[in-house]
Design a protein around this nucleic acid. Structure first.
Lengths: 208, 208
DNA sequence: TCAGCGACTGACTGACGTGTCAGTCGACGG
DNA sequence: CCGTCGACTGACACGTCAGTCAGTCGCTGA
């Protein structure tokens, strides 16, 4: 049992980016393990097992377990941030809102495993890391809140505490994503986007 | 440093429920520690320290660390379940919805520390525990979905995937509670209830 | 007065899992 | 053919922390 790990070596030709490739392999294995077991239950052992390298190799590429987790989440956060576009009130607002929703949903469903990490494992890793995640969502919330306030002045958004409205919207988004990603629900992207948009437009109770 | 812990003893009179009291003390200390540090970072040491008892005493009252965490969360879940009342379509629906929201929000804000535990630490404790939490919210979602479907047939609820609508609502609720409980936001209960209700009624975008 | 009882203590241990580091191995250039 | 280089290995050391248990303490009832 536990055959000695056959020495790994990348094809001689690509020595230049061989390291980058190896790094990528480990990163992917880590994402799988984190998504499957959560941060705390994930053992470095599992990660290196998945990547097919030895324990020591892991530490040649990453500072420690926390660092690799952080890197994976960071990448997603950056892309997430880029998916959000400011709404131009001169043009059709509905379309822009819908597009924003679509881009975000698309991004999150593109790599469900990483999304799962962000949504369900990113808490309780570390005090510093918790703060980071929090402040990211805080920025998103703040941006959204401003937009809602602008919208309220223009009569496009219903009156009310913009901060709370922003929170509700973010919560609704987080929860769908969580459901789709954690349980196997395969609602189509378009369906989710449309439903969410309809929800923001009309709420759920008919005002008759 | 670290004076030997003065032997603890409850007033002689109340020996009957002395144990119940001690239990309660430990439970409370645990709630504080879990809420402050999260499940994984919480040491049994901190809990017994907070309760002012020795390590061994803890194990006279609770099976293990997981058990005490589970008990705290369970109590909240039970009360949460009881706060939800089926909506009677014969009477005023809006009022009933509002009351449900009010009861739930009130319950969750009553003991913010426990709510924080439920919302941010209850994931990643354990595979079995994760399932339990999940299936609880699944029940809530399912109940809500049915209500929405009934409402749709009666024309009280806007058409659309009831399952997604239910998820959005739960997400919005979770997120406000999370914000209020984790950050210090002291929006009044009534404000939260009204905002959330307005959100469900009108969405955020004016349909003009 | 003292034996019995049960609540309580805290030093201890065993498991676990991270991170280290001395050593191996193959490639490659001279 | 040999020496150097650096990617890679995996046994091990180490800290941490949950849970145990032999022993203490003081009340109570005979």
């Amino acid at each position: 049992m536990a055959e000695p790990l056959e020495r790994k070596r990348h094809p001689a030709a690509v020595t230049a980016d061989a390291k980058a490739t190896r790094r990528q392999e480990i990163l992917q294995a880590a994402r799988d393990v984190f998504a499957k077991h959560g941060y705390h239950a994930a053992k470095v052992e599992d990660i290196v097992g998945g990547a097919g390298v030895a324990r020591g190799t892991f530490y040649l590429y990453f500072e420690d377990k926390r660092a690799i987790f952080e890197e994976i989440v960071d990448r997603l956060l950056v892309r997430f941030g880029m998916a959000i576009q400011r709404v131009d009130v001169a043009a059709d607002v509905s379309d822009q809102v819908r597009s924003n929703i679509r881009r975000i949903v698309h991004l999150l469903l593109e790599d469900k495993l990483t999304t799962k990490m962000l949504l369900s494992d990113a808490h309780g890793v570390d005090l510093a890391f918790d703060r980071k995640i929090h402040s990211f969502f805080e920025q998103v919330r703040s941006l959204l809140e401003e937009s809602l306030l602008d919208g309220q002045e223009l009569g496009i958004v219903v009156a009310g505490k913009a901060r709370l409205q922003a929170i509700f919207i973010i919560g609704a988004l987080k929860e769908v994503m969580n459901q789709v990603v954690v349980r196997g629900w395969d609602d189509s992207e378009e369906e989710i986007v449309e439903s969410l948009f309809a929800f923001l437009r009309d709420g759920v109770i008919t005002s008759e």
